[in-house]
Write a protein that binds this DNA or RNA. Structure first.
Length: 460
RNA sequence: UCCGGUUUAGCUCAGUCGGUAGAGCAAGCGGCUGUUAACCGCUGGGUCGGGGGUUCAAGUCCCUCAACCGGAGCCA
């Protein structure tokens, strides 16, 4: 394996090196050709200088953008402005030529067009930066939890339980859908004869499994793909996305919020440190002021207010909202945006929501009206984290399940946890792609995920 | 799913009052002694998203379908 271009660009001038990469652009004149080599290891490209005496000069001069080459030569201080070092080529091997119809050009393309060539867009500058940051963010998340002694739980992707009834699920089956489906006595599809001998789906959340492990390992987290078959067509939703769900035993809502803030700040700090060049690129081309926004986030403590306070603040804001604000109704996007962008201007926890509009497993507060829930709202993206302290009292949990019309039989193991050494515990879920959007300033979830799955589209 | 917008060359876009199509980049050819999305000259490239309608005449007006984009709902 040869050195990456990132390593070469960082090293001192030296004779006899080899660089491999794809051409970002070429500039040819009669006696000299400049090749810009990029291999995705960093934002910058390596300039290779090829003189007319180099074997195969004519073919090299005719190379198009996207071609793959291997260049051997000496790394020398660049005599021209624009780069510290450059590669003076002794030989150039054309490894894979790109056709004249190579769709990526040395100019800006629209993200819409690039989505139609998802097999080539990773070679574009913006997507190089996005996916380097995506990797760095993932590593930062694992490191954050590992440093604090959290255990990662690989929660199952195929599940027979439907967490909180949240959203449409993708059915998993081995039935031959073209053939006759086996029916039970009532005339319904008989999943007892399916592969798992029960109806199964792709997971919408690993939280319930996370709770099981939290009640054994104290602090755990899940980090995996989740699936929602909702027909939501927006720039913030995908049918397949990744979610991080920490769960802590012997922890209440305050502890949950403290961890959430620490978590967000630590992972942002690490990405700023490790991907400074990429962040500056986003700051310049995607979202002006991005670096300032992230640096401020790392320093400031987050604001917090109760749902009741939020409703009062919205009522006296003097703003005319499309949706009426009233206690008991869920906050709309426009309300959340006002609170985090205009009222406080930074990340904001909204806590203690009415129990009717939140999930059954959230711990009921003493007022009998609200539950110990928290949403973290951030400017531009909206809700980035949703979490709660879980209901650990068996009678209250059963009452809540009755209220929500849930079948206690299917959740027998979840209830059982409250019978055997149950403790107060809490956790939250972070949408990985949403965090990435916040970090990069990218405005469409389709552009921060390698191959987006959204309604009507699963190509690549 | 609902509301709004867009669809013109490979890409990014312009196209006035309805009168038969334009630019930059890319591609091809030529030129240029070190370029930085290099530069200069020339050439080729279009069923104006599909279908229907109005009109002497439609890229332009109307209807319809589709794709894409933005917003909403749902949420992460």
């Amino acid at each position: 394996m040869t050195e990456t271009i990132k390593c070469i660009l960082a090293s001192e001038p030296q004779p006899g090196i080899v660089a491999e990469g794809w051409l970002r652009t070429t500039r040819a004149s009669k006696n000299v050709v400049f090749l810009e080599l990029n291999d995705g290891s960093c934002l910058e490209s390596l300039q290779a200088v090829v003189e007319a005496s180099t074997p195969g000069f004519a073919e090299i001069a005719a190379l198009g953008v996207g071609s793959a080459v291997r260049v051997q030569g000496d790394l020398i201080p660049s005599p021209a402005q624009g780069q510290r070092v450059e590669l003076k080529a002794a030989s150039v091997e054309i490894v894979g030529q790109a056709g004249a119809d190579y769709p990526l050009q040395k100019k800006r393309h629209s993200f819409e067009f690039l989505r139609t060539i998802a097999h080539l867009r990773p070679r574009a500058k913006t997507f190089g930066a996005v996916f380097r940051v995506r990797h760095a963010l993932q590593m930062a998340i694992h490191r954050f939890f590992d440093n604090r002694g959290f255990i990662q739980v690989h929660s199952p992707i195929i599940t027979a339980s439907d967490c909180e009834g949240a959203g449409q699920m993708f059915r998993v089956t081995t039935f031959d859908l073209d053939g006759q489906l086996p029916k039970d006595d009532a005339g319904k599809v008989d999943f007892k004869r399916d592969f798992f001998e029960t109806a199964t789906s792709l997971t919408v959340s690993g939280q319930l499994e996370g709770e099981i492990f939290a009640l054994a390992f104290k602090n755990v987290y899940t980090f995996g793909p989740t699936f929602r078959a909702e027909n939501s067509n927006t720039s913030r939703h995908a049918a397949e996305f990744w979610m991080i769900e920490p769960e802590m035993a012997f922890c209440d809502l305050r502890g949950d919020m403290a961890l959430a803030q620490d978590f967000i700040q630590c992972i942002v700090m690490e990405v700023l440190e490790r991907c400074g060049e990429d962040i500056d690129f986003f700051d310049q081309w995607i979202e002006k002021g991005l670096r300032k926004k992230l640096e401020a986030l790392v320093k400031s403590s987050f604001e917090a207010m109760t749902y009741t306070e939020a409703v009062a603040a919205l009522a006296k804001s003097g703003k005319s909202f499309e949706y009426q604000v009233s206690w008991g109704a869920d906050l709309q996007s426009e309300h959340e945006r006002y609170l985090t962008e205009e009222l406080v201007g930074r990340p904001l926890f909204v806590i203690d929501y009415p129990k009717e509009i939140k999930a059954f497993y959230m711990r009921q507060n003493d007022d009998d009206k609200t539950v110990a829930a928290m949403d973290l709202l951030v400017p531009q993206v909206g809700e980035i984290i949703g979490g709660s302290q879980r209901e650990d009292r068996l009678d209250r949990l059963e009452a809540a399940m009755d209220r929500f019309g849930l079948d206690k039989q299917t959740y027998w193991w979840y209830l059982d946890l409250r019978r055997h050494g149950g403790v107060p515990h809490a956790g939250f879920g972070l949408g990985f792609e949403r965090a990435l959007m916040y970090l990069t300033g990218m405005q469409n979830i389709r552009d921060v995920i390698p191959f987006a799955r959204v309604p009507g589209s699963a190509e690549f």
